[in-house]
């Protein structure tokens, strides 16, 4: 059974049908790409999958469980984590604290424990620190743990966002244009990181991307969205050679 199975997903904003009859099936452990020209509705799909928007129709099944219409907080707890196209870090907090906020629901102590600095506070904080540093190491950010996150270079901010998303212990990771604004070398590194995450965290990844080098380099399957509807889906090489897709991207 597919990990994520979406059927007939659609949303209207007033009279505008932004996404219509969207279907996708992602198997566990897959690296899946969602591509399409600007304004095709890719981010809208992400926003529906993560509960930011409530879909007008269709169903979203995660690991056999219907999560359609749940709030974004609930969906994160069900196991979907995401990054954003325009980076949304907690800018006035350190890199370490950004990841620790991601760990919020996994390591718990009460507010009173925090105010009174009970032994539980010290123990759990230590565990959180260790776990957070461990995650930062994966992204080669552990040396910058105490840097204010807004002071990181752009490429590292993107990585930190992924680290923060992974901290919530998801089963499915959604990356919204992870390579946007990166230079070729950074993109290369990012591809390595995404592969590493998939292999070592036992993760399934769905990503939106415009960088065709990255898409063809790491995605196993693709779905192409155009004007809110699925244009093509299947194996990466097949989809990228599909004349319809080429037409949508480059024109006739």
């Amino acid at each position: 059974m597919a990990l994520l199975s979406v059927k007939g997903l659609g949303i209207s904003f007033g009279g505008l049908r932004a996404v219509d009859k969207f279907n996708i099936n992602i198997e566990k452990g897959q690296l899946y790409g969602l591509i399409g020209p600007n304004g095709a509705g890719k981010t809208t799909v992400f926003n529906m999958l993560t509960g930011v928007y409530k879909p007008t129709d269709g169903t979203i099944m995660l690991d056999g469980k219907d999560i359609t219409g749940k709030t974004n907080i609930e969906i994160n707890r069900e196991g979907i984590a995401r990054t954003f196209q325009n980076i949304r870090l907690f800018k006035e907090q350190t890199v370490l604290d950004n990841v620790k906020i991601g760990l919020h629901n996994r390591y718990k102590y009460s507010t009173l424990d925090g105010i009174l600095r009970t032994p539980k506070y010290h123990r759990v904080e230590k565990e959180m620190d260790e776990k957070a540093i461990e995650l930062l190491k994966v992204f080669d950010l552990d040396n910058e743990a105490n840097v204010l996150s807004s002071n990181l270079p752009y490429g590292k901010q993107r990585k930190l966002e992924i680290a923060r998303a992974l901290a919530t212990d998801p089963v499915l990771l959604l990356l919204d244009e992870p390579a946007a604004g990166m230079n070729p070398k950074e993109t290369e590194e990012l591809m390595e990181t995404i592969r590493f995450v998939r292999d070592n965290f036992d993760m399934t990844v769905l990503l939106i991307e415009h960088d065709m080098k990255l898409v063809s380099g790491i995605c196993e399957e693709l779905t192409v969205l155009n004007f809110g509807e699925v244009l093509a889906a299947g194996k990466t090489t097949d989809v990228l050679n599909n004349p319809e897709v080429i037409k949508a991207y480059i024109g006739e």
């Binding site: 993560t50 930011v52 709030t71 974004n72 907080i73 994160n76 707890r77 984590a81 995401r82 954003f84 949304r88 870090l89 907690f90 800018k91 006035e92 907090q93 906020i101 991601g102 919020h104 629901n105 923060r164 998303a165 901290a167 919530t168």
Partner: peptide
């Protein structure tokens, strides 16, 4: 305070 949408996305109530 820093980013409500991101806070929700990592499951903060």
């Amino acid at each position: 305070r820093d980013n409500q949408i991101a806070a929700e996305s990592v499951g903060i109530n």
